[in-house]
């Protein structure tokens, strides 16, 4: 998966906590500070939207898998029982991994069956999933 919010914030601390060797103290460190600043800005977006995006995606995937189960197998309904737990990012991601694996299997089966209607529904869902997880890069001034 992409790094989690705790990964990013921990990394921002770790990469700045150690004094750099002399040859990395100038331009390289200035560049690193800029990247850490950008990561912090994006982390604010993830803190604001990350949990809601995961809760929405997990609920949507459960509904999709349950709806497809009569045609594509009971294993999909079984996967849909993955629970969000305590709603921490880690817990939501664990459920999401189970649900996404089932989604991948479903999409493969849908393609094999030539089920265009459900294929298109899944493609639209991909757009919604990507949009919900987006990170908005602010307009940065050029040099």
């Amino acid at each position: 998966m992409t790094p989690s919010l705790p990964d990013i914030l921990l990394g921002n601390f770790l990469c700045m906590a150690e004094a750099p060797p002399p040859e990395s103290a100038g331009e390289f460190m200035a560049g690193k500070v800029g990247v850490v600043a950008l990561l912090s800005l994006l982390a604010a977006q993830e803190a604001e939207r990350g949990s809601a995006a995961r809760v929405w995606e997990n609920a949507t995937l459960r509904a999709l898998l349950n709806a497809a189960a009569p045609d594509y197998g009971a294993h999909l309904a079984e996967a849909a029982r993955a629970e969000d737990g305590d709603l921490s990012l880690g817990s939501l991601d664990r459920a999401n991994a189970t649900l996404r694996r089932a989604l991948i299997a479903l999409h493969e089966a849908v393609e094999a069956a030539g089920d265009v209607q459900r294929d298109h529904a899944i493609l639209r869902l991909y757009g919604q999933m990507a949009h919900a997880r987006r990170l908005d890069m602010p307009p940065l001034p050029g040099r």
Partner: peptide, 24 residues
């Protein structure tokens, strides 16, 4: 060990952006 922020940007922002591009 989470120490290279360039890898973080690559693995995070650009990955999410390419998911948007692919889905579209």
């Amino acid at each position: 060990g989470f120490k290279d922020p360039v890898l973080a940007i690559s693995g995070w922002y650009t990955a999410r952006r390419h998911d948007e591009i692919l889905a579209e």
